[in-house]
Structure formats: structure tokens, C-alpha cells
Design a binder for these strands. Structure first.
Lengths: 324, 324
DNA sequence: ATGAAAGCGCTAACAA
DNA sequence: TTGTTAGCGCTTTCAT
């Protein structure tokens, strides 16, 4: 039988209300009383029952996050940031994985909604109207997705893409292929919004290919198409695809970066570990997770829907070189 | 104001208990009544308050899992399995990351304990006595760790290691280097328990090196040492290390698998994506996560502490070849 | 500064 | 088969 607030009250010779106050409103009890209560609570190993507390306060102290696919190394990074920040502010976090399915996503969100103070939806697949409905159930923060009236954390991939193009242009590339990710994805859209104007500005022609699956196989499948365009550089939607391109090129005996330069997006762990190490636009995964928690907390505190844009960083490694 | 059980009761013209029963003990109400209640509940969008329910039943419907490090691709795999299975049985899952620190681990477990029915500890870092204490707070299942009296899911890495050695022996290797993972780790211990007898049996000499950090840098750092032993094959504690070895060998111009064969452990996503693709012992990550949930559910159902051992699979790829 | 008492929304006896 | 009632453990008025 776990120890309750009454046990502490009895032992400390005060009322339950005093115990309650000693724990959650220290200013309202005399210092000596408070100390005695705390001592007793400690000695008895008292842990307030969160269900009872939240039943009355309406707050759970929990956050929920749903990501599209934990197998994509990008999301564990975000998740890790969310959890780290949540821990710092004393929150626990519910996690789930939608398998990139909008319907599942909806079920998961509604399931979590009842037991969290707020939700973080990472690159959600739901359509705008559905998403708006979900966001209305509980305070919600979006990551890498925009929806009017809903706060969001954005990673500035347009700027990252512009950096990437500038880098290629500086290396003398005049023709590049872009391997698209999922057609409807906000993130793919954003990359294009960075790519096209920057390419125009630098006088780089763009062959837009795809959409492809945003994974290794997708990249491997796209590699030959990219080659056929005659482009001297390939920009992939994400690192997983870039890795696929690298692998297929190796198979084909196409030298990277001597004959073709390859560029990824995300900077997942393996981008630095492959051969050649991948030049890529690093997205602030952990920072994004942390920012989402902060934004959520602000909303719970009554702040209006804000948007926070996080900078990206071009990491130049060995997969890009001057056009030969 | 959210809709409560009383709203449903009033609208359906029954008592609250009937509503309660219609939802959680369908057999106890007449079919027509039940249908009416369900219709009203649906129409009103009624969602039972989990805090209130758990306050009285003592059950939360939540599970908790803590992993050492989400950046290691092995753990997202497990986490993903846990979550998938939990969802099937209607549970939500709390997640956290200990950063491979025993003290943090303990804090996290105690923090979660109050709001979960059971806990899954994945390759925990806590010492046996501390772990035993943690496991006594709530029903607990261990993954890749054993402790008397505590149920656990084990991945049979001893057998996997034996397979690996047999594979190398068949290729004619007579001398191999083993790059140890963390000294105290149960999993490292297990690998050795498979390696040594199998090596003996097949007449393969083993150079035991390390311990090293179980990551890319650790492997890269260990590569030269391994080479210096004169072994024709290197078995790394895990894939991340094996990838480090591969990278360093590439730098050194040491041909894999022509001059040295390299073997990993885990079969993380990248193992199939690197060059050359890595021969490795695949650990059932998702299956392990699912099994842990099942075991936990059995414990909650009153079953005694059981141990479930999951088989591993040797995946032969291009990083191993006959000794030249 | 402290205590008494009224619930939060729900389930589980116990009655009917 | 259904309703009535008593709490689960806690916070929060309202008194004192």
C-alpha cells in the first residue's frame, strides 16, 4: 500500500491541506512546519499521486510527441531533444510513431490528447483541415510544418538550400539535379523554394527529378536518372537518399566527387561516416526538439501562436568538389 | 468544458454506472441500452477521463521505457517495436533516454514509476543492486540484461557470435581480433561467451582488444590496433564500431575484404548502406521491443518472471571474404 | 498559518 | 439489468 498524503499528515501532526501546501505552495506555511512536513514526507518516501492531482488541477505534467518514422535517423534526433528539454522542466513525454500514415497519426494524437498538457507534431502527414482539428484538441506545436494559428518550429531549409547552391556554384557547377522527396511534403516544398531562386541567381540549371521515396532505396533508384541528365552535381532531398545515390554510383564506377558531386540534407550520423563523407545541410534536430518544448510551454503559459525558425548549417565534406 | 460521464448518462437517460459498464463491461448491460449509451457517447464525443479512472482502478494503461542513447540506431529500433506492440494492446508509452548515465537512469525510472503500469529497461547501466531496487518499484522487464527474479528479453548474441566465428573459420581465417565494447556491459560479456568457445572449437586464435567506445570513433581508433595484431579478420562489438574500422581502413588503404574481413553486430540500417556492405549479426530489435511488451503484460497478468531469448541472424554481406 | 470540507470524474460494491 | 452510494488521493475554497 503506497503512502498517501494522509499518512504524512498524521505523522507530521498537521492536516492534509497543510501537507499539500507545504509541497506545492511553500509560501503559505510557516517555515518550521514546512520543514517538518518535508522531513516526514521524505522519511516515508511519499510520492504524490499524479492521477489524483491532475484530476483536480486539470494538468498532467506530460507532453506528447508523434513522429512519422523512427527508422529515419532524423526523428530520433528530434525526439532526443524533446525529451532532454522536457526533463529539464519536469515533464514526462509520451511518444509515438505514425508510420507515415495520416489516419494512424490522428488516432495517436486523439489517444494521447487526454493525458497530456500539450502535443508536438513532427512533420505531420495529416492534411491541413484535419491537422487544424487535431491542433484544436490540445495546445499543439508543429515541427517543420506551418498552419495558420498554430505555433511551429521551422528549420530553415530554404536558406540551407541556398547555401548549398552557392557552394556548388562556387565550385563551378552549372547544372545540377534535384531529387525530390514526397510530393506533398512541406519540407520538400521548402527546399524547392530555396533551390529555384538561388539556382536562378547563380546561373545554375536545375533538373528536377522525382518524387522518390525519401530513403536509401529511393536514392539508389534515382541515381541513374540523375546521371542521365548530364548534371555535374546531385542534391538529394535527404541524406538517406544521398547515401543511396553514393552506393549506386560506386556500383556504376562513377567517381564522387571527381565526376559528380553529391549533396545531402539533414546531417544524420552516417553522413559523416560514409565514403566519401557527405557534404550536407545540417538540420538542428535536437535544438528543434528543445525549441518545440519551449514553445509549447509558452503556449500553456498563455502566449499566442509563435513561429520559431532555426538556422541550418552547410557542412562541407568530401562528396563535393570543383567541377572537373 | 469537456463532456463527462454524467452528461452521457443524462442524455442517454441512464445512470452513470450504466454508462461506465456499457463502456468497460459490455456483458453487464442489455444490448439495446448499451447501443444507446454508445451512440450518445459517440455523438457527444465523450472521452473517459483517464486520471479519474486510474485513480480508482490503480491502473494507468501506460508503459514506460528507458534506453541508454537514442543516437545509437539500435535503440530506436527497439523503441519502435515497443511502441507498435503497445499500441496494439491499447497502451501509451512514456519514453526517456538516460544518456548512458546510471544516476540519470534511476531518476528517470523513479519519475516514470508513478504513472505507468510497468517499465521496460533497455540495456540498463545501473549496477545490479540498484537495478533490483528499481525493478521492485514497478513490474519491470529488462532487455539485454539479466537479473535474478526480473523477467527479461535477451537477444542471443552468444549464438550469433558463434555463427560469426564459424563463418570466418569456413572462409579460412585462423586469427581474428575482437574489439570489445564497454567493459562492464552485459552484452559485451555475452559476445565473449559466444566468441571464445567457438574460436577454440574452430581453431581460431583471438586477439582481444579494448574496451573501446561503442561508436564510430571508438572503432576508428581501434582499427590500427587490430591491424597490428596481424589478424585477418576483425569482429567489432557493434556496427557503429565496425563502420569506424571500415573508414579507418579505407584511409589507410587497407582493402576490405581482400586483406582484412570486418564483421559487425546489430545490423543497423547503415550496415547495409556502407561500402562494402557489412557482414553482421542481426539483432531482433523490433521483435525484442514487442516481446518486452508482451512479457510485461504477462507479468501484470500475474505470471512469474520469465526469460525470453530471441534468435539472432548472421547476415553475410561483402565485408567478409576468404582469407587471401 | 492552519484546518474542515467539498468535490475533480470515475468505478465498484451493494441494492433493488 | 440497472441505480445508488461511497470513495480513489489530492487541491482548494472557506472558515478559523
Amino acid at each position: 500500500m503506497p503512502v498517501t498524503i494522509r499518512d504524512v499528515a498524521r505523522e507530521a501532526r498537521v492536516s492534509v491541506s497543510t501537507v499539500s501546501r507545504a509541497l506545492s505552495a511553500p509560501a503559505l506555511v510557516r517555515e518550521t512546519t514546512r520543514q517538518r512536513v518535508l522531513d516526514v514526507a521524505d522519511e516515508l518516501g511519499y510520492q504524490p499521486n499524479r492521477a489524483a492531482r491532475s484530476l483536480i488541477t486539470g494538468r498532467t505534467g506530460n507532453l506528447g510527441i508523434v513522429v512519422p518514422d523512427l527508422q529515419n535517423p532524423f526523428y530520433p534526433g528530434v525526439l532526443s531533444g524533446v525529451q532532454a528539454r522536457a526533463r529539464e522542466v519536469g515533464c514526462s513525454v509520451f511518444f509515438s510513431d505514425s508510420g507515415e500514415d495520416p489516419a494512424t497519426e490522428e488516432v495517436l494524437v486523439r489517444g494521447m490528447a487526454g493525458q497530456v498538457d500539450g502535443l508536438i507534431l513532427c512533420a505531420p502527414f495529416a492534411a491541413d483541415d484535419h491537422l487544424a482539428q487535431l491542433a484544436s484538441v490540445r495546445p499543439t506545436v508543429l515541427i517543420n510544418r506551418v498552419l495558420p494559428g498554430v505555433p511551429s518550429v521551422l528549420m530553415d531549409s530554404s536558406a540551407g538550400m541556398a547555401d548549398a547552391v552557392a557552394h556548388l556554384a562556387a565550385l563551378g557547377h552549372r547544372e545540377c539535379a534535384y531529387l525530390s522527396g514526397p510530393a506533398g511534403a512541406w519540407s520538400n516544398h521548402r527546399r524547392l523554394r530555396g533551390l529555384l531562386p538561388a539556382a536562378e541567381e547563380h546561373g545554375v540549371a536545375v533538373h528536377q527529378l522525382g518524387p522518390f521515396d525519401p530513403n536509401f532505396a529511393g536514392g539508389a533508384g534515382a541515381a541513374d536518372l540523375a546521371l542521365a541528365t548530364g548534371a555535374t552535381a546531385v542534391i538529394a532531398f535527404n541524406d538517406l537518399m544521398a547515401l543511396g545515390v553514393l552506393a549506386r554510383f560506386a556500383e556504376l564506377g562513377v567517381a564522387v566527387p571527381e565526376r559528380v558531386s553529391v549533396l545531402g540534407f539533414d546531417d544524420i550520423l552516417y553522413a559523416a561516416m560514409c565514403a566519401p563523407p557527405l557534404t550536407t545541410v545540417a538540420l538542428p534536430m535536437r535544438a528543434g526538439g528543445r525549441a518545440a518544448v519551449d514553445l509549447l510551454l509558452e503556449c500553456l503559459g498563455g502566449a499566442g501562436p509563435a513561429t520559431r525558425t532555426l538556422p541550418t548549417t552547410l557542412r562541407v565534406r568530401a562528396s563535393t568538389a570543383p567541377v572537373g
